[in-house]
Write a protein that binds this DNA or RNA. Structure first.
Lengths: 182, 182
DNA sequence: TATTCTGGGCTAACAAGGTTAGCTTCGAGC
DNA sequence: GCTCGAAGCTAACCTTGTTAGCCCAGAATA
């Protein structure tokens, strides 16, 4: 049951391009991800990229999808260890992913999410672990926002240099545990 | 005791330019804020702007300063009403400011904060109300992150269209109240 | 008063970035 | 053997930030 999405998404050349783009992003950050640079890394010229992606945004969307898949996997793995506190474990996984892939993380969250162009169920899969751990939708959204806020402030260098970010996470996770509903 | 900062910051022409920039930002969003458009709105040409600001970032910094001043004032006003819950009142003020000025808010938080180029004490002034209300530094940072996360997810259109954002705020504010320390 | 300096404007121009138009080439399939 | 589409290329365009270098008017100074 190969879906149309998979087809259009996963042609080999497209995949190669996305991988190259990812490398650039991880290594040199978002400003470095230009069509010309990407093409050069692939041994071709920028306009040729448009044979594979309608525009840069479409390319970035694939990076976003990748990010969702990876972070969803990270959350699932975190829960699979049967941690004493699911919430803390998810928080730690969330933070780790964002710190290890800050550029992708930013790409994933900076803009409105084009849900209709995402693989079906992907967003749900990424959100489910936390929703389940928090026991209420409102609580899950608060916890997500807390994690997102902490991560964003951290990777955007908004905390003072001497700030104890671990302590802020602990305070936050404690607060989330206290409002959790079974 | 006119400080050097005030001098270089507040020459009348600079102020006019910042005001025009702010108008563009509020009305048409960040992509609309180009040097040419800004210059045109002021009846001049783009290169002339560089007689007043070394680069675009310096201009944006003034918008950021403005945003900090306004939001600090909003927090102070919120506390001045002697609300039953300071935390909830600050949260509401935070959210209101971000929703009313999403572009400035994003500008303020999107990037590392160039503290050395900010008026002395401004960041502290903006942060103090929450720090005081939460009673602990870690708690204040968690609360700040929560508010920031909720606001960012909201203005970036990340919640599902039918999401009950009010409920998420309530859950979050409740959690923060419970970890508050007098 | 005559000169000088400087603040603030202008034009021309550049480089970088995304993107389009239109040509070519090559291999699969009829 | 011919066709056709996928995938490359060059040339070019527009927008954006930015620099170089010119000019003018009014304040400051000799």
């Amino acid at each position: 049951m190969t879906s149309v999405e998979t087809d259009t998404r996963l042609t080999p050349r497209r995949r190669e391009i996305v991988e190259a783009a990812r490398l650039i992003l991880e290594r040199d950050g978002e400003p470095a991800l230009t069509m010309r640079r990407l093409a050069a890394d692939l041994g071709m010229k920028a306009p040729s990229l448009y044979k594979h992606f309608v525009d840069k945004e479409a390319l970035e969307l694939e990076l976003i999808v990748l990010g969702f898949e990876e972070s969803a996997a990270a959350f699932e793995a975190a829960l699979a260890t049967r941690p004493r506190s699911q919430i803390a474990a998810l928080g730690a996984a969330y933070r780790r992913y964002a710190r290890e892939h800050p550029h992708i993380y930013r790409l994933m969250t900076d803009r409105p999410l084009p849900r209709e162009r995402l693989p079906v169920g992907l967003e749900y899969r990424a959100a489910a672990p936390l929703a389940q751990a928090m026991g209420s939708v409102a609580g899950a959204r608060a916890a997500w926002a807390l994690a997102h806020g902490l991560v964003m402030l951290e990777i955007n260098g908004r905390f003072p240099a001497d700030a104890d970010i671990d302590a802020a996470w602990e305070a936050g996770m404690t607060a989330m545990e206290r409002i959790r509903q079974s």
